[in-house]
Amino acid sequence: LLKCWPCSEPADLLKVLDFHNLPDGITRTTGFCTSRRSSKEADVAYRVTKDAQLSAPTKQLYPASPFPEDFSILTTVKAKKGGQSFLISIYNEQGIQQIGVEMGRSPVFLYEDHTGKPGPEDYPLFRGINLADGKWHRVAISVQKKNVTLILDCKKKITKFLDRSDHPIIDVNGIIVFGTRILDEEVFEVSCDDEQLWRRSADRDARTEHCCPVRELAPSFYVALN
């Protein structure tokens, strides 16, 4: 899901990318939790293989508004062990990657506004974190003003400087690519359970059970814009 404020309804990225109809390269599998107190069934996940070609016009997310300056991306994801793959990439009309969330060792948050800031050498790098260990992780990435914060598994929190313009613009006339970048080959599994929400409680400790409580868990792929 993707939500902007003051938008009342979030946009579902999985729906926009047609996950539910299982396009080529997409299969259903078991998600983060095999059982919950609130449900007798296991979480549902989608496995993304190299055969998948998932993309959609960015305007499908924001048909009547610009891309917001401040936003958060929340997801429950299982990346290929030892890989370096992108969960989501957003390209402008000229094919330049504007936003990218990498799943790997020392993941990078790729961001480039309309002025070209920041440059590749200044992309925020989150050292000491490995998202490609073959395990499920709850990941939140929040962009606010000139900072980007990564919250891992409801516990670990790292904030980095994002050297972007004062009023950055992300072009919505391009496309969103899911599970990879153009010419990339790495893929991963991503959880999908529309019943679960993590929202702003992502930075809380969830010590009550192995899986975060139902109100504190992201749906398989949840994107919120603050």
Rank of each mutant, 00 (worst) to 15 (best):
L54E: 02
Y46A: 03
A56H: 00
F86Q: 08
H167N: 15
S201P: 02
P66R: 15
L13A: 03
Q196R: 09
I176R: 02
T76I: 07
R127S: 11
L13S: 03
E93M: 11
L131E: 13
I88R: 09
A132N: 08
Y62V: 12
T149Y: 09
S201H: 11
F126Q: 06
N147L: 13
G83P: 01
L197H: 13
R164D: 14
C154L: 14
M103A: 07
E102G: 08
S85I: 00
V48P: 00
S55R: 03
T180E: 04
S89E: 14
S55G: 05
V143F: 10
T29H: 06
G95F: 03
K40I: 02
N147F: 12
L17A: 01
P63M: 12
A56Q: 03
A218E: 10
V108R: 14
A224K: 13
T149F: 10
A140V: 04
I182P: 02
Q144R: 11
C211M: 07
K160W: 12
K50G: 07
R127P: 08
S220C: 05
P118Y: 14
L197M: 13
S38N: 04
D133P: 01
Q53M: 10
S65Q: 15
I90Q: 15
K50V: 06
G100V: 04
F161W: 14
G100I: 06
T208L: 08
R36Q: 01
S72Y: 13
P168F: 15
V16E: 00
S165Y: 14
P63H: 14
D113T: 06
E41S: 00
G104H: 08
R47L: 02
A42S: 02
D122E: 07
A42W: 01
V101W: 08
K145P: 02
T29V: 00
E121L: 06
K3C: 10
Y123F: 06
L74P: 02
I99C: 03
K156D: 08
K78E: 02
C154K: 13
S8R: 14
K80Y: 04
K146V: 05
D122Y: 01
L14W: 08
Y46D: 04
N21H: 05
T30A: 05
E112Q: 10
A224L: 15
Y222T: 06
S8Y: 15
V44A: 06
Q53N: 13
S35G: 00
R164S: 11
P63D: 10
V139M: 04
Q60R: 07
D24H: 05
P118M: 13
N21M: 03
D24Q: 09
V172L: 14
E186R: 02
T34R: 03
C4P: 09
K3H: 14
N226T: 14
F221E: 08
G128L: 10
M103G: 07
L87I: 01
D166K: 15
Q60Y: 06
P213K: 13
G82S: 08
Y91T: 08
C33Q: 00
S65W: 15
A132E: 12
A45R: 03
A218Q: 09
D24V: 01
C192T: 08
I182W: 10
